[in-house]
């Protein structure tokens, strides 16, 4: 390998580090954005190390039922004798996994689609854009409920790959719902960027379409993409919690925040209010955190531009 390649590599790494550094600096400069980011990081730690942090197993029913919050059980126990504190902590993992991976998947697929149709234009763009319009016209929650309802009724044998697929259906539904939105954002950025000189230069150089899309256009789309991804993540959390609340998507006794809220509502709210309030607070806190963070991300991206 030539020295020139090595130098180019070092330069791009340095540029990346500088950009990210400035981005992080901008993000933490505003107190609101910093707070939001810290909240998200806090929950991320819970998601990653929940098993070490939670004092008990999420489904252990050996505790005295209906205990109000006390020294042994900081968030109390529910009517089944499970520790609410442990369940809230261990529920972080599932919401990050489903909402986070769902968003990542949507961003990945949506970016590719957006780049390709935006750059290609013509009939392909027309066709795919109309499909995207059609998908955006459908209410997210309704689509999710119908899809999950159907998948659930299929009832695969436990242990088969179909069953594993069904168990991750919420993640896939989030990806399906958010792909068109991401694709549209990326497409509109692409339309604007492809008219710039450096793209034309690459075309004149005779670079392949693949090279132009991913090496020339894609880096310029990243700022818009980061903003969109953080927004999608916050909506995904809301959606996962809503679906859990409606009782689809998660299988009891998985400690899912939304499901915990609905499970302990109604008459159970009078008996064990803490078992509903604590996960509800966790949802609220995380959504507020992600919202503050995504607002900060948007500002930081604008500043870094």
């Amino acid at each position: 390998m030539s020295n020139a390649f090595y130098l180019r590599w070092v330069r791009s790494v340095r540029r990346l580090v500088l950009t990210v550094g400035r981005f992080v600096f901008e993000l933490f400069r505003r107190p609101q954005s910093a707070l939001g980011t810290l909240i998200v990081l806090f929950f991320l730690v819970l998601a990653l190390f929940g098993n070490q942090i939670a004092p008990y197993d999420a489904n252990d029913i050996e505790h005295p039922p209906r205990q109000s919050p006390n020294d042994d059980y900081p968030f109390g126990t529910d009517s089944r004798g499970r520790d609410v504190y442990s369940r809230v902590i261990l529920g972080t993992e599932s919401i990050f996994r489903v909402a986070g991976l769902g968003t990542l998947l949507a961003v990945g697929v949506g970016t590719i689609i957006g780049l390709v149709i935006g750059y290609q234009g013509g009939v392909l763009d027309e066709l795919v854009s109309r499909v995207i319009d059609a998908m955006l016209a459908l209410p997210a929650l309704l689509v999710a409920l119908v899809t999950l309802g159907v998948i659930r009724e299929l009832q695969f044998e436990p242990g088969t790959w179909q069953a594993r697929f069904a168990d991750n259906s919420v993640l896939l539904v989030i990806a399906i719902l958010y792909v068109p939105i991401v694709a549209r954002v990326v497409r509109s950025s692409t339309l604007e960027i492809k008219t710039r000189e450096f793209v034309e230069a690459a075309q004149i150089r005779g670079e392949s379409r693949f090279y132009i899309i991913f090496r020339e256009i894609f880096p310029s789309v990243i700022p818009a993409l980061v903003v969109e991804a953080s927004l999608r993540f916050s909506y995904a959390i809301f959606l996962v919690a809503s679906l859990g609340f409606l009782g689809v998507g998660v299988r009891p006794p998985t400690p899912d925040w939304g499901h915990m809220v609905s499970d302990n509502s109604g008459a159970f709210y009078d008996l064990t209010p803490w078992a509903m309030e604590r996960p509800a607070m966790a949802i609220a806190l995380l959504v507020i955190g992600v919202n503050l963070m995504s607002d900060g991300v948007r500002r930081a991206v604008q500043k870094s531009d």
């Binding site: 955006l136 459908l138 209410p139 939105i181 969109e228 927004l231 909506y235 809301f238």
Partner: peptide
Amino acid sequence: MTENQEKGNNR
């Protein structure tokens, strides 16, 4: 939150 609100807002 309906999809319409969601879309309008983030746009």
